[in-house]
Simulated scan of single mutants.
Amino acid sequence: MLRTATDDDVDTIRRLRNQQANRDVSITSHEISADEHAAWWAKTSADPSRRVLIYTRAGATAGVVNFFDLDGTSGAWGFFLDADGLAERGETLPAWIELMREATTYAFDELGLDVLTGEVLEHNTVVRQMNRRFRFTEGTPETRYAGGRELTVIPISLRKENRRRGKA
């Protein structure tokens, strides 16, 4: 289930984002400080072109979905799971599939988008495979530098009419 994030979720969002598994596949890979996170939340929670959603599974917070650059017909997204907690419970794959299904449904049915975009690091082959399963297409890779690292970033996109429906 997805629900809108509130001020009460800020510490949990930061804790999940700082899990090593999430940092390893993020453009920004350093540990996010409390001050940095508070500044991000203050800006993000007041921005009408953004939505931050909490993904819950069996009553527990299991992930975070960020939608940004929303303009009415298109928008970008990213997400991260509670990698540690889901792995411990053996629920990573079903949670991941459920989050992607719910997030793409939210993007197209709730936000009314025609196209959903995002980015994935080239080395994140597991996410790239899941994206293809959900019918995202990859664009031309680009090189970026972040945190002293050279990264290959691949843009992804999914058009409303191409999305997967029903069970993924």
Rank of each mutant, 00 (worst) to 15 (best):
A103H: 08
T104N: 04
T104P: 03
T104R: 09
T104D: 02
T104M: 01
T104E: 03
T104Y: 05
T105E: 14
T105R: 15
T105D: 15
T105N: 13
T105Q: 10
Y106Q: 05
A107F: 08
A107H: 13
A107Q: 09
A107P: 03
A107V: 11
A107G: 01
A107L: 11
A107W: 12
F108M: 09
F108C: 06
F108L: 03
D109H: 14
D109E: 13
D109I: 04
D109L: 04
E110S: 15
E110W: 07
E110L: 00
E110K: 11
E110T: 13
L111N: 09
L111C: 04
L111E: 08
L111R: 12
L111S: 10
G112A: 01
G112V: 12
G112W: 08
L113C: 06
L113A: 04
L113Y: 12
L113R: 11
D114R: 15
D114K: 05
D114S: 11
D114N: 15
D114F: 12
D114M: 05
V115S: 12
V115N: 07
L116I: 03
L116W: 07
L116C: 05
T117L: 08
T117H: 14
T117W: 14
G118T: 03
G118F: 09
G118S: 12
G118D: 01
G118E: 00
E119C: 10
V120P: 04
V120Q: 01
V120A: 05
V120C: 10
V120F: 03
V120E: 03
L121P: 01
L121G: 00
L121M: 07
L121R: 12
L121Q: 06
L121S: 08
L121Y: 07
E122Y: 05
E122R: 09
E122G: 00
E122A: 15
H123F: 15
H123D: 02
H123Y: 11
H123E: 11
H123N: 10
H123I: 05
N124C: 06
N124M: 04
N124V: 12
N124G: 01
N124I: 05
T125W: 00
V126Q: 14
V126S: 02
V126K: 15
V127K: 06
V127I: 07
V127F: 14
V127A: 15
R128C: 04
Q129D: 14
Q129V: 00
Q129P: 00
Q129A: 10
Q129M: 02
Q129S: 08
Q129F: 00
M130K: 08
N131P: 03
N131F: 06
N131K: 07
N131I: 04
N131G: 01
N131R: 07
R132V: 09
R132D: 13
R132W: 07
R132Q: 14
R132F: 11
R132T: 10
R133C: 04
R133N: 11
R133E: 10
R133S: 12
F134S: 01
F134E: 06
R135Q: 11
R135Y: 09
R135G: 02
R135W: 10
R135T: 12
F136I: 05
F136P: 05
F136E: 00
T137V: 13
T137C: 12
T137I: 13
T137L: 14
T137F: 08
E138M: 07
E138K: 05
G139F: 11
G139E: 02
T140M: 13
T140K: 15
T140S: 13
T140H: 14
P141V: 01
P141W: 09
P141S: 04
